[in-house]
Amino acid sequence: MPAHSTDPLLHPEVRQASILAYGAGFVASTVFMAIALVITLGRVLPYLGLLAAISALAMLALLAQVVLLFRLDLSETQLWKTVSLALVIPLFVLSIGLTGWMFHTLYPRTMLHFMAVQGSGSMM
């Protein structure tokens, strides 16, 4: 092969390794998860408030991982990974969100059993 007889260790994806970023990624995601754990155990928030808070913390942890561990950005090396992730995220939202919405409206119409337990169960 003519082109790539170069040293693989010089490849930009090898070069991007950085103690600082990786360490910060570890600390950030651990801290966010620890906060989430504490507020869950503290039982101060109502259900929806808790859900919103821990979801937000999960998003923050994921963001930290995407930026600091995966090192995604718009550089030439990472551009297409970033683009593909950006294209796929809406699909998570669609598949999980629309499924949730659909079943949310479906249950009261189709499940007699639902009526009986609706009062005590938590809605999704």
Binding site: W101, M102, T105, L106, R109, T110
Partner: peptide, 8 residues
Amino acid sequence: TMGAGPDV
């Protein structure tokens, strides 16, 4: 026809 709500 499964029966989801009209908005869905």
